[in-house]
Amino acid sequence: MDTARRTARVFLFNSENRLVLIKRTRPGRDPYWVLPGGGIEPGETPEDAVHREAFEELGAHITAVHDAVTLHSTPTQILFIAKLVDMDVNARTGTEFTKPDRGTYDIELVPPEALSSINLQPPEALAFLRENPAVFSRT
């Protein structure tokens, strides 16, 4: 049985092909941006997890989900590409929003030309976007 922790994250694009990211601001750290996503729960497929996490973190429904890349880091991160259907930030349900000591989780829509000016984590996600610029027009 595989007990290694795995996460599912998504390169999520809105109708203007802007990347939907979460800006993390934590006490004592410089801001950084992350892809929506999180841990894969027992019995859940990575694709199921990315749908669930998009709703929990963004209040979003997504479509056109397909594999992008797997990062063999700790934890293993399975990255998907998807299109935003709709988003209601008031519907966010993630437990992280009830813990003010964890900082803020602001949603930002980032155009491709702005990626070089933000600290996107993990760095491999930014590298993937730089190596695959057509991803912005594929969704």
Rank of each mutant, 00 (worst) to 15 (best):
L21N: 00
I22R: 00
D88L: 07
L79K: 03
I40Y: 04
D106C: 11
T25A: 02
L19M: 12
L35S: 03
E53P: 01
P46N: 12
G43W: 02
A91M: 15
R26D: 02
I22A: 00
L84M: 03
F97S: 06
D48A: 15
A60G: 10
G39D: 09
L58C: 09
M87W: 00
D88V: 12
T104M: 14
H51Q: 12
I22E: 01
P36R: 01
A54Q: 07
L35M: 02
V34L: 06
E16K: 12
T63A: 06
A82Y: 05
N90H: 09
L71M: 03
S73L: 11
D30W: 13
L79H: 12
N17L: 09
A91E: 15
P111F: 08
L19Q: 13
H72V: 14
V69F: 06
I22G: 00
V50C: 04
I22D: 01
W33M: 10
L71H: 00
E53Y: 07
V69Q: 14
I107E: 09
Y32K: 10
D67L: 05
H61D: 14
P36V: 13
T45C: 14
H66G: 04
T74N: 13
V10T: 15
E44R: 08
I107A: 01
T93D: 08
V20P: 10
L79A: 12
P46I: 08
H51S: 04
F13H: 14
I62T: 04
K83G: 00
L71K: 01
E108V: 14
N14H: 07
D86N: 11
D106R: 14
H66M: 09
I107Y: 08
G103S: 10
F80D: 03
V85K: 05
D48W: 03
V50K: 02
I40C: 01
Q77F: 04
H66Q: 08
L21R: 03
L35P: 00
P75C: 12
N14S: 12
M87T: 03
V50I: 13
V20C: 15
A49R: 05
R52G: 09
P46E: 05
R29C: 02
I22H: 01
S15V: 10
T95N: 11
P46Q: 04
E16R: 08
P31E: 14
G94C: 05
V89F: 15
R9F: 07
N14F: 01
K83L: 03
E53F: 06
P31N: 10
P36E: 06
I40W: 05
G103L: 09
S73F: 05
Q77S: 13
E16Q: 02
H72W: 11
T98A: 12
T93P: 06
R24M: 09
D48P: 05
P111C: 08
H61P: 01
V34P: 07
G28H: 06
I22P: 00
V89T: 15
R52C: 11
G37R: 04
V69D: 11
D48R: 08
I40H: 09
L58W: 01
E16D: 03
T104L: 13
T95G: 11
F97N: 11
I62Q: 05
V89H: 15
